[in-house]
Design a protein around this nucleic acid. Structure first.
Lengths: 217, 217
DNA sequence: TGATAATTTGACCGGTTGGTAAACATTACA
DNA sequence: TGTAATGTTTACCAACCGGTCAAATTATCA
């Protein structure tokens, strides 16, 4: 037999699982850093510590590797939004959503950049996922937010743009990490910036920038 | 003589100006859509409507083209931040900064994506610009914001993270356009989303999400 | 243990990449 | 108008790209 990947139907060998794991890890590293077109199979093979033909034995094309990677990562990536609870306290829910997204930007920046690269370049490989599962999930949660606003629990606002705002502000710290570091300078380049960001964003989304309780000085 | 580009020291021909213009326009189109590594010189030549050697007569390397493009665009890109006026009304200044940035996302999405691609991939070509001119400008404006907060004109907050938040939320509509469209669906895919975004963001940054004047129902 | 299947490798392929050489065409200008 | 400088094209190159192939190696298990 010479079926490597098609062997999915059969149960997978220990060796298969190990190698596929190593490959996807390397693929994440390279795709997230250079985008699909900018990444090369040789480079991924190099990072994975194996020869190119060996890599192509497990994933027959560059495209197949990319697709497998997207499939594996997308689910995890949407978890924080899924956790958004209609029954919870609105302000608390929004705060913890921000916090979770910020933690993901800190702990999984490559995953964030993988999607950012893809979407930025027109999402040629994940258009279906965007218009399908993603849109449905967002629609569902937008409805929750809308009901909160209707019930007067939060300010009336466009729920879609609220979600966009949370996505963009949090993922910014992963996707534009170099810029953030460059602007903050060496002093603040520790992990402390994530705590600062969390404090700022929670405050921003809840109270805005207007001076709070004290009406005037 | 065979000095094409080095002829910068001399005054430039009409033909030089026209061609360089066309090339940079094409380069913007291609680099912003595929990133540096993903873009090809052939493709840029094609979009510019000229042969590859002809293009390389004006810009001797792909790298030189990219650098020239960055140089030309960066200045314009920072204009809205420069317009940030220390003497103005804080809330008004922030509102109009948001509005201007959003207009740029709408009118110059390619420029936004050019930088996004670059920064996302580690800013290998513009590291100096980030740590130099950009940082200095942000430092200056951050100081303005800090003084506003100190004077009690806006809430106390980290000025750097405020600037990041404005950048990310506004540029999101250019950089992640495909995703925004996919999530909003066909109905809202007109230019109306920019007006909705403007309304939402101005409100968010000023008042936050808490229910405003009406204490309870 | 042996044979069968799974895995790994080096050599290689056609197409594409960024870039060059030199002949040719056009423009500017004395 | 003539000619020197500028601009354009065709043909080409070496390096790299994604991917193949057949031979060699290793793991599996009756």
């Amino acid at each position: 037999m010479v079926l490597p990947r098609a062997a999915r139907t059969q149960r997978r060998t220990r060796i298969q699982e190990e190698k596929e794991e190593r490959i996807l890890e390397a693929a994440l590293e390279v795709f997230s850093a250079h985008g699909f077109r900018g990444a090369t199979v040789d480079q991924i093979a190099d990072v994975a510590g194996m020869s190119k033909p060996n890599l192509l034995y497990y994933f027959r094309t560059k495209d197949a590797m990319h697709r497998a990677l997207i499939d594996r990562v997308l689910d995890t990536w949407l978890d924080p939004l899924r956790a958004f609870d209609a029954e919870g306290n609105p302000v608390t829910e929004i705060r913890s959503y921000i916090r979770r997204k910020l933690e993901m930007a800190r702990d999984f920046p490559r995953e964030s950049r993988l999607f950012a690269n893809e979407v930025l370049q027109g999402a040629p490989h994940i258009e279906d996922e965007l218009k399908g599962p993603l849109k449905e999930l967002v629609d569902e949660k937008a409805e929750v937010i809308r009901s909160w606003a209707k019930a007067g629990k939060i300010a009336k606002c466009d729920p879609y743009h609220l979600i966009f705002a949370i996505w963009s502000t949090t993922q910014h710290y992963a996707d534009f990490d170099v810029q953030v570091r460059a602007v903050l300078g060496q002093g603040n380049s520790g992990e402390g910036r994530f705590e600062d960001a969390a404090r700022f964003l929670e405050r921003l989304f809840v109270d805005g920038l207007q001076v709070s309780e004290q009406p005037a000085s």
